[in-house]
Write a protein that binds this DNA or RNA. Sequence first.
RNA 1: CGGGGAGUGGCGCAGGGGGAGCGCGCACGGUUUGGGACCGUGAGGUCGCGGGUUCAAAUCCCGCCUCCCCGACCA
Length: 514
Amino acid sequence: MDSCCMPSHLQAPGGSCYSNGPIRAGILRSRKDVSPMAEALTPRSQDYAKWYNEVILRAELADYTPVKGCMVIRPYGYALWENIQAGLDRRFKATGHQNAYFPLFIPMSFLQKEAEHVQGFAPELAVVTHGGGKKLEEPLVVRPTSETVIGHLYAQWINSYRDLPLLINQWANVVRWEMRTRLFLRTTEFLWQEGHTAHATEQEAQEETLRMLEVYSDFATRDAAIPVIQGRKSEREKFAGAQTSYTIEAMMGDTKALQAATSHNLGQNFAKAFNIQYLDRQNELQYCWTTSWGLSTRMIGAIIMVHGDDRGLRLPPVLAPVQAIIVPIWKRPEERAQVLAAVEGLKALLGDRVRWQVDDREEYTAGWKFNEWELRGVPVRIEIGPKDVAREQVVLARRDRPGREGKSCVPQAQLVPSLKELLEDIQKNLYRQALEFREQHTQETDDYQEFKEVVAGGFTRAYWCGSPDCEQAIQAETKATNRCIPLEQPEQPAGHCIYCGQPAREQAIFARAY
RNA sequence: CGGGGAGUGGCGCAGGGGGAGCGCGCACGGUUUGGGACCGUGAGGUCGCGGGUUCAAAUCCCGCCUCCCCGACCA
């Protein structure tokens, strides 16, 4: 680790962002593009949307580009995405899936093979009409999702029950022409993973659909520290072409809902549209049962909105590109040498046990750096100054408890175990705070008057008869949509639809949503 | 696609017929560094684009483009 050949603030020798150890992703090289006038962020209570945009731009997660709705994911934001990918990819592999890559362009006619699918996506397709200076025989759509091309290929690859199940995932970009865009939440182009599987029986497909919903739920809970509600989408809200769609819904810091991931049981809809057939043991031709499931860069928006506070981001340690930022502090030159020597000791101690970085830029004061790394959501700050050097200790400051109360002194010899413990505690605390917030803003009711009052302030759980008309009427009157029918239902469900009063057997979650 | 707001130096903004300014950032020098330090000197702009009115347009008129916010549609 030879720091003298690098710019002083780039003291990390690199290494994969997926692994622990010193990292260099997203280091601040300068303060360009950041408004110094707005040293404090717009408080969330004052203007939540403005706060959201400011956090993203100032923390350098992303930026706008010349094309409407297209954003650039900057190194710090991309490092976060890479950690999300790593957490998911590991789970996909553990459940037997393989990665592959399917093409960006899809013949227009493919989309048209599944009636509901094309109807759902037609308004938001980007279509390529020319190539190589000539008009194309058949327009190509830029994939909005890949069920159709993948269906086409599955039909060729699958012949026998012995070829099943076929379990493939792809990491890709997709394009959906959106009227209204928002950084990470709804961009014209976005990154995601889409899993596509084919099975011999309906039951296996259903098991797969719920297995992947559980994978998403586990990722959200353990890695992103976001509590989610697993549920089934209503007919109105389901994926175009699916038999049944499932979702994990999360509550953002302004009490609105966000669909964080989806998993679809596609039934035989795409199998029939694309002739995905196999010969069973009795030598009879059968249609496959397929599924698809996806999670996108929207998850980054969820992390920002679930955990962020008025100081900026608060990243869950499991996903944070930088888990600990070391800030050396000194006054006099001889102190500088001592402190920096001690920092070398800390670096050796930490090794690749956590993802750390040293901010020894001399053009900023310690206080400035404290605020800056809090804005960027780094879970733990390690302060080391002359006093700490003398006492062979460091100060650990936790992001989830800003200011003096979140600081503690630990002996340098205890740094690694203390830090690891602290990171775990922060991870748990972020989840606990998010869960508490959601519970505080969730109500159950069977009275429509009350429903109308409370639904503006969070999640409302109510019996629903299943009629799309009731859903639509509720949306028109309250701006709240049916987020999902939670998988967890009362043991002896019995009630009346919150809107029409007809007998209802299931409860749904209603909320305003992103 | 409707409603609202905005395009002036890297960022945030003021200026509304006649000299393109302020704050921050940036560069250089010096003093500083335990919760967003300070002094000095400097660099940096076809005022979103295109037309028009005028002796004269950042400023007035017409058209267009882009971005943000709020709604309808969607991961």
